[in-house]
Amino acid sequence: MESAIQQSCMESIERPDRLFCDLPTETLKAFDALKSTTECQRGTVLFREGSHCKGVLLLCEGRARLSVCSETSSRLTLRIAGPGEILGLSACLAGSAHEMTAELLDSTRVALVRRKDLMEFLHDHREACMKVVSLLSQDLHRAYDRVRSVGMGRGRRSRSTRVH
């Protein structure tokens, strides 16, 4: 990651279109105070599968590839995350290691919120907590879709097209 810059969520024009970002003003101000924004280059690995979760990363722009790895290092893309998504949320809430690797596909701005700060913020702001529940539900639906497509593939050949 490169030089840290501060940018306010209040200035974002895309905010109303993004599930988590569209928070009430006071809640957003509180979130703004917690986050630190960083410019990252394409190819930056935001976190690795199995690594300790330090916090969540909010993808302000650009895309990130979320993938899982086998013991033999073959990689399977779970999905491509887009602008406005929070990465590392489930590991952060469960207090577990990251269950996937996130790698940037574009050079972009990423906002980092430390785990401890996020937990306190969610306890104090019920609207944000409800948004997080909605986001996790959405993530879970996508994950089950992936289970369906991988598990119900007709054979190894159909599945292998998605293995990178």
Binding site: V68, S90, A91, L122, V133
Partner: peptide
Amino acid sequence: FKVAEQLSEKYNTACHEVRSLGL
């Protein structure tokens, strides 16, 4: 908050399932 924690666990399990089936 408890629901968010449950959903996180379920999500982790689903990812584990994708890994197991796909890799």
